[in-house]
C-alpha cells in the first residue's frame, strides 16, 4: 500500500512538472479564471441592455416625448424623418419615432421585429404620451439573480470539469508521443495506480477551475455545501474525459479532432435540454454530463428539490462511464500493453 501511494505520488509530481513546462497546460489552468473574469464584466452589460429608439427631434409632437422616452431606453435624436428611416434600416434593432400625416407620433419598424415588439412599442409610446395608468412603486428584492448570469455560472462549472480532463488528456498524449508509456512496462507501476494518478491529477485541476470560477463569478450567499457535493459527485468525470480524448488520439492533432466532438457532447448537448420539449428530455438521460448539468443547475438556478437525486445520478453515471472507458481502453493505455494493440491505434 505504502509503495502504491509512493508510485501514484511520483506520477502526479511528474505531471505537475510537465504542466509547468508546457505552456498549453498552463493556459488550460488559467482559462477558467480568465473566462470567469471576462464574464464578470460582460454579464452586467448584457443585463443592462436597453431598447433603442431613433426619434425625429425636429417635430414638435415628438420633441415633447423625448424626456419620457428616455425612461424606456436609449434615444437617438435625429434631424428628420428621413434620417430616422435610414437609422431603422441599419442592421441593429432600433425603433423609429416619427410623426404621422396628422401630426401624431407613430412607430416605424423595419419589418423583422415580430408582432410582440410592435405591441410593446405601442404601449411604450402611449404611456410616454399620456402618462401611466396606475401609481407605481418599486420594491427591490435582494438575493435575486439574472437567469443569463446563472446559466453562465453553470456553463463555467461544466467547463472547469472538462478542463481538468483536457489537461490530463494532453499529458497522456504527450507520453504516448514520446513513448513514455512503454517505459512504464518495465516499472513496478500497476494499471489501477496509473489510472488513479491520472484521475487524481485531472480532478485536482477541475477543482481548481471550479472553485476559482465560483469565487470570481459566483453570487454571494450560495450554498458551499452544494458546490462541494457537486465537485465530489463529478470527481470521475475528468478521468473519463482524459481517457476518452487521450485514449483515442495518438497525437495532439488527433486529440484536437477528438476534443471537438467531446466538447460538443459535454457542453452543448445538456444545454439543448433548455430548448427541447420536456417529453424529449429523456433522450439526454443516457449522457452522464446531463446529470452534471442538472446538478450545477441545482446550485445556481431554481431550487426544484431534485438536487440530491441529480447529484447522485451524476456520481453514479460518471463512475460507470469511467469504469467502462478504463476497461475498453486499458489495453492501449496501461503499462505493459501489447505493441500490436498500440500499432492499431497509432496507424
Amino acid at each position: 500500500m505504502k509503495h502504491s501511494i509512493q508510485r501514484i505520488k511520483s506520477l502526479i509530481q511528474s505531471d505537475l512538472a510537465n504542466a509547468t513546462r508546457d505552456s498549453m497546460v498552463l493556459y488550460i489552468l488559467a482559462a477558467p479564471i480568465l473566462l470567469a473574469t471576462i464574464m464578470a464584466f460582460l454579464l452586467p452589460a448584457l443585463g443592462k441592455a436597453e431598447l433603442h429608439f431613433a426619434a425625429d427631434q425636429n417635430n414638435p409632437a415628438i420633441q415633447v416625448l423625448l424626456p419620457e422616452l428616455e425612461r424606456f431606453g436609449q434615444v437617438e435624436a435625429l434631424e428628420s424623418a428621413n434620417a430616422v428611416e435610414r437609422r431603422v434600416h441599419q442592421s441593429d434593432h432600433v425603433a423609429g419615432i416619427i410623426a404621422d400625416d396628422d401630426g401624431r407620433a407613430s412607430i416605424l419598424l423595419q419589418g423583422n421585429e415580430g408582432p410582440e415588439a410592435a405591441a410593446l412599442m405601442q404601449a411604450v409610446l402611449y404611456t410616454a404620451a399620456n402618462g401611466p395608468e396606475a401609481q407605481y412603486q418599486t420594491e427591490r428584492q435582494t438575493g435575486t439573480r439574472s437567469g443569463l448570469a446563472d446559466y453562465a455560472r453553470v456553463i463555467l462549472g461544466m467547463l472547469s470539469v472538462l478542463i481538468g480532463g483536457i489537461a490530463a488528456a494532453f499529458a497522456l498524449i504527450d507520453e504516448k508521443e514520446n513513448k513514455v508509456t512503454r517505459s512504464y512496462s518495465v516499472s513496478p507501476l500497476r494499471g489501477f495506480e496509473y489510472f488513479f494518478s491520472r484521475g487524481l491529477w485531472a480532478f485536482a485541476v477541475s477543482i481548481f477551475g471550479t472553485l476559482a470560477a465560483h469565487l470570481i463569478l459566483g453570487p454571494a450567499g450560495l450554498s458551499w455545501g452544494r458546490l462541494l457535493l457537486v465537485i465530489l459527485a463529478s470527481s470521475t468525470f475528468p478521468l473519463a474525459i482524459c481517457l476518452l480524448v487521450g485514449g483515442i488520439a495518438a497525437n495532439q492533432i488527433q486529440a484536437v479532432a477528438a476534443l471537438k466532438l467531446v466538447m460538443f457532447v459535454f457542453l452543448t448537448l445538456p444545454l439543448v435540454s433548455l430548448f427541447i420539449p420536456q417529453k424529449l428530455e429523456f433522450l439526454l438521460w443516457i449522457l452522464p454530463n446531463f446529470w452534471l448539468f442538472k446538478a450545477f443547475e441545482g446550485i445556481y438556478t431554481v431550487n426544484d428539490g431534485a438536487f440530491l437525486l441529480n447529484a447522485l445520478l451524476c456520481a453514479v453515471s460518471g463512475l460507470a462511464a469511467s469504469l467502462l472507458l478504463a476497461a475498453a481502453l486499458a489495453p492501449t493505455l496501461t503499462p505493459g500493453h501489447k505493441r500490436k494493440a498500440n500499432k492499431v491505434i497509432t496507424a
Binding site: 425612461r71 431606453g73 410593446l120 404611456t127 401611466p132 395608468e133 396606475a134 412603486q137 420594491e139 435575486t144
Partner: peptide, 26 residues
C-alpha cells in the same frame, strides 16, 4: 385608480421596469 407595487430584482435596470410598467398600463 389602481396602485401597483413591483417586486423586482436588484439586477433589473430601471428601463426594464419602465417597460414592465408600460405593459401593465396596456
Amino acid at each position: 385608480q389602481p396602485q401597483a407595487t413591483i417586486l423586482a430584482g436588484a439586477h433589473l435596470p430601471d428601463s426594464a421596469l419602465a417597460l414592465l410598467e408600460a405593459s401593465i398600463d396596456e
